[in-house]
């Protein structure tokens, strides 16, 4: 358990007045407040530190005690008294936590020196629990249909229906599955962010899918059929004679499902890419030369 320099946390020196401390605290609290920095764990930790520093330094009695023992707090009388009163097992559990600031409101250093919290900013007010954030990695094919999944978050199994057509980066909120409320308040929510990786040949933009189909020169000139694999089976594309490079065709309703609109789909846009032969046989070259003479 390390000594915590509260003056350093607030960015003031030891001779700072109460007014200096209040000013520094308010400035840093505004900067790091969790409501102003949503989903920012670092800001939350900083806010706890700033809050704790303020609780010690803005209180004359505690500031005096803190200044008196300073870095030698472990040998101070307050610490000795607190030590005697503490249950050995409880102490072991506390000091075995990996960080000075855990999930609690105060650091181990603070609790050892001053006991539990005092003048707690929240008092006994009931507050909603913290929102939990989780990420779910899925493939594009997984979100083509609505699927039921079971997630394990903090040891709890949570059943979740992933609606077809969900987009990359989209967040689904599950009410009441977050952190427990403070002082009997309601639980927070679980926010699941979807990371959808695409390992298919299709590009997706919303509910539309895009694909480039390569055509050889003969099919582009003479026309013909191409069979294309899509998410819901094979589709026959009819290539018109003299199809130009870059021609786009739109297959209505063959795209991706529209989120939460059952049975509705976007479009599939096909772009034709004409591939010229990389090698010609003597006979082919001869025929092309004949064609060229006709122009």
């Amino acid at each position: 358990m390390a000594f915590i320099d509260y003056y350093k946390i607030l960015g003031v020196d030891k001779s700072a007045t109460k007014s200096d401390i209040k000013k520094a605290y308010r400035k840093l609290a505004r900067k790091h407040h969790p409501d102003l920095n949503p989903n920012d764990k670092e800001a939350e930790l900083q806010f706890k530190k700033v809050n704790e520093a303020n609780e010690v330094l803005s209180n004359d009695e505690n500031r005096k005690k803190y200044d008196k023992y300073g870095e030698n707090w472990q040998h101070g009388e307050a610490y000795d008294q607190a030590q005697k009163q503490q249950d050995q097992q409880q102490h072991y559990q506390r000091s075995s936590r990996p960080q000075d600031f855990g999930d609690g409101e105060y650091s181990d250093f603070f609790e050892s020196m001053f006991g539990g919290g005092f003048g707690n900013r929240s008092g006994n007010t009931k507050f909603r629990g913290q929102d939990f954030n989780a990420q779910l990695q899925l493939n594009l094919k997984d979100v083509y249909t609505t699927e039921k999944r079971v997630l394990t978050v903090n040891g709890k199994n949570i059943r979740l229906t992933v609606p077809a057509g969900i987009t990359n980066g989209q967040i689904i909120k599950i009410k009441g599955k977050g952190g427990e409320g403070r002082n009997g308040g309601p639980n927070g929510d679980l926010l699941i962010e979807f990371n959808i990786s695409n390992n298919t040949d299709f590009k997706r933009d919303g509910s539309n899918l895009y694909k480039t189909v390569n055509l050889d020169v003969y099919k582009s000139v003479l026309g013909g059929d191409v069979i294309l694999d899509t998410f819901d089976g094979k589709v026959k594309l009819t290539i018109k004679p003299l199809t130009q490079n870059g021609t786009q065709v739109k297959l209505k309703g063959k795209g991706f499902p529209i989120y939460k609109k059952e049975g509705q789909f976007g479009d599939l846009v096909i772009t034709y890419n004409i591939e010229l032969p990389k090698k010609l046989s003597d006979k082919e070259k001869e025929l092309f030369e004949e064609l060229a003479k006709l122009q």
């Binding site: 409501d35 949503p38 987009t167 980066g169 919303g206 895009y210």
Partner: peptide, 22 residues
Amino acid sequence: LLEKIDDLKSELITAQNKLKRF
């Protein structure tokens, strides 16, 4: 301002998803 941040985040995600097409 938080509402604006949320809107901008959504726009950013949409733009990043569009960019992936290219």
